[in-house]
Design a protein around this nucleic acid. Sequence first.
DNA 1: ATTAGCACTCGCTGTCGAAGAGTGCCAGGA
DNA 2: TCCTGGCACTCTTCGACAGCGAGTGCTAAT
Lengths: 340, 340
Amino acid sequence: MTLDDRKLEVLRAIVEDYVSTHEPVGSRALAERHCLGVSPATIRNDMAVLEDDGYITQPHTSAGRIPTDKGYRLFVDRLSQVKPLSAPERRAIQTFLDGAVDLDDVVRRSVRLLAQLTRQVAVVQYPALSRSAVRHLELVHLSDSRLLLVLITDTGRVEQRVLQLPTALAEHQVAELRTAVNAGLTGRPMADAPAQVESLPDAVGMELRPVMLSLATVLLETMAERSEERVMLAGTANLTRSALDFPGTIHPVLEALEEQVVLLKLIGEIETPSTLRVRIGEENVVEGLRDTSVVSVGYGSGGQALAGLGVLGPTRMDYPGTMSAVRAVARYVGELLARQ
Amino acid sequence: MTLDDRKLEVLRAIVEDYVSTHEPVGSRALAERHCLGVSPATIRNDMAVLEDDGYITQPHTSAGRIPTDKGYRLFVDRLSQVKPLSAPERRAIQTFLDGAVDLDDVVRRSVRLLAQLTRQVAVVQYPALSRSAVRHLELVHLSDSRLLLVLITDTGRVEQRVLQLPTALAEHQVAELRTAVNAGLTGRPMADAPAQVESLPDAVGMELRPVMLSLATVLLETMAERSEERVMLAGTANLTRSALDFPGTIHPVLEALEEQVVLLKLIGEIETPSTLRVRIGEENVVEGLRDTSVVSVGYGSGGQALAGLGVLGPTRMDYPGTMSAVRAVARYVGELLARQ
DNA sequence: ATTAGCACTCGCTGTCGAAGAGTGCCAGGA
DNA sequence: TCCTGGCACTCTTCGACAGCGAGTGCTAAT
């Protein structure tokens, strides 16, 4: 049986009412608060069909209906138009983000802003190393046997690593290494780095080869290990605002949020910017997030996403509002990083 | 009226039982589970005195007693000896922390370890800029008009900041600036920096003076603004493990933890390492943390603390265990940073 | 196809009584 | 003087139960 327009309208009404009231919605309330032009009895018939098809369900016999994950899915896919942000909201985003002084600041500000706009948990991933380019490599001579390697990307990320030297080096030797690695890598996209690093040892004098080799190893390690790993979180307190949102406790949710790996999974795997992704309830593979929804999107300038950001909340969330906020913040962050 | 030894013993027994059972403890249970050598009736009399003096209280008439903040305070000050960690625990701390590759890693590992050991919320502050020394300053020429300033401290912190140049610079001019700032600041404690920065403009040629001035401004800003600001948090999920710990919800607690400023206040103001500080319940000035206790300590090598770390949990916490874990982790972190 | 009416289900709420835990106090004993 | 056993009292907790109200499903009429 296919759903006619009115049944879809009823589903939308149920989702909207349930999201705003947090209570199962009955046929009478629906007829009163929405201009559906039909009586409660008719709505009841439609509801029965919607329930048979698995879009809504009853917590218990004498209660109204609430949407199922499948119902929210249909709502998001076909029934909701993304509502544009108000002009003040747009201005607020812009002015708030424009004050950022460096990458850390950009990420921190975005994640807070997102948490505040959506009143949910926000996650922002740092620009992926793998999709950035090398802006500069610096070697700092800490002591005879230790060298600090600092890697700076064009998106403003700074990674550092201490390197134990096999032999003591003179200052001019450190300079030679510095020149060589910068000549080989500066300006190159990180993806090309492994190939470039291979040829580094050839660029320096014989006596520096062993050092350059261990330097190359550390470089590759740094780029590989940390390539995607950093995220920032904000708004966890929003989880507790309405305690009723989660059956049982929020413990599993908080636990899941502690795992960086999980967070990255939530946001990750994003190729093109501006394509919103919504994961609803059971669609989340992560144990413990089965009662939450995640709205995420890639950000970055041009056609390639640098990384992702998103929002996590109860399945009963304001999808249109959340989606537009997430999209707007991603757009501004992308612009901001391109300007750097 | 002064408390005799047995009353103190009764208080200790009440605290210990309440901490382990989470339930008000009555006179009979106390007589059975502790070898106090007196009858429940006697204990009841002692309890009445302890209650009059404000060390314990009754949730309601027909319930046992629970310690008050004042009771916990006495317990911590006079009745509890810090229990040493087990050998395996010590070894676990050491091996876990030894794997760290840089400062970020040290902080991340410590905070997780602390959260895991105490099963509470852990907070670790990054080494304060103001108490570190400058290890190196790097200037990276981003474009004609923009310069990236990277500040590296002897504790491994890296701070960066983009600087808009008043005029375009040639590469050799950037080098001159770099040499000058490093000559002036490298090796100096950050506390001396303001004075040193003053004299920087004199160290370069006339045409670089304006640039050096704005560089100096940014340097001072960076050191001042971010001097204490960074902390890392872990184990928030532990707050929800036993929901009964907090009257009402954990919302205010989570909200407080979102504020960096609050976290810094919790840990901050620590001068000497190894002096544990315990703040119990109402002793916390921060609104929303009135039902929690904070155990914090400074860490660092030598007589001066670099920064602080600590743990936050319900007032009903295992103080001896928490205190020893906090102290142990602080000690290892201090050693680790000294070795860097 | 829609609607009004009606019986039915079931969760929520408040009351009541019994049970249980713990106390405070008192009188007797070391 | 301090400790102890006993006892009456208070107060929460829990289960049972009835009444209420919300909401549904079904049926017959339009």
